[in-house]
């Protein structure tokens, strides 16, 4: 520790910054993709005919029963076997995150939708809105407000989970730190630095969620 030169940090900063950008890119794309697929799964479970609903339920429960790291790893190994060519660590990790997070988002979104009183749907339908319009304009806007804090919490967990992509050799922030730490021979210092960064980002995010939660529910 005593021979750690603080200037080293600024020297490796661009490399670490690239890693952080990869983590954020993964996070944002996985949130978007997982959110979309999750919404679809939630609507399938709530409004779909029985076989469709069962399919969605099977997907959700199946994926929630396996560890994320396994999904990332197997996706990376298996997809090239199926399609006959490698797909790259980032794409592979992103797809794995999307299909995995969708299962979690789906349950949050389903709970959000079901927390909107059923009579709201009846009122929307009675006014002549079609079922899709009723969801789009009446049910989902109310549901989103209720589930936003939980969705954001899940996204913080997702951000932490992005560090798992080291298994496929993707240079996210954690991997960048790890590579640097080993190269420079300052394991303790660099891993401490990683802790500070992860903690600061996640703590700030969860504090803002709590702030959101304390706001009076918009009428």
């Amino acid at each position: 520790m005593s021979d750690f030169d603080p200037d080293l940090l600024s020297a490796v900063a661009p490399f670490l910054w690239d890693g952080l950008l990869t983590s954020f890119g993964l996070l944002l794309l996985a949130m978007a993709g997982g959110g979309l697929l999750g919404t679809l799964l939630a609507v399938m479970r709530i409004a779909g005919p029985r076989p469709i609903a069962a399919l969605a339920a099977g997907y959700v429960n199946g994926l929630r029963s396996v560890p994320l790291i396994m999904v990332i790893f197997w996706f990376y190994l298996l997809v090239p076997l199926v399609i006959g060519r490698p797909i790259g660590a980032f794409t592979s990790a992103l797809v794995a995150f999307v299909i995995f997070e969708a299962a979690y988002y789906a349950e949050i979104i389903r709970a959000g939708i079901q927390s909107v009183p059923k009579q709201q749907l009846a009122a929307a339908l009675a006014s002549g809105l079609g079922p899709l319009q009723a969801y789009r304009f009446v049910i989902l806007p109310q549901a989103v407000r209720k589930m936003l804090p939980i969705l954001l919490s899940q996204s913080i967990a997702l951000f932490q989970d992005t560090s798992l992509v080291y298994v496929v050799g993707l240079h996210d922030f954690m991997t960048a730190v790890s590579v640097t730490a080993n190269r420079e021979g300052h394991l303790v210092e660099f891993y401490l630095f990683a802790v500070v960064i992860y903690f600061t980002l996640c703590f700030a995010a969860s504090q803002s969620i709590q702030f959101l939660n304390r706001q009076p529910v918009s009428p």
Binding site: A122, A126, S127
Partner: peptide, 11 residues
């Protein structure tokens, strides 16, 4: 249609 509990859209 008019409902017992109004069912105005709160948002």
């Amino acid at each position: 249609m008019v409902f017992q509990h109004f069912e105005l859209y709160p948002h």
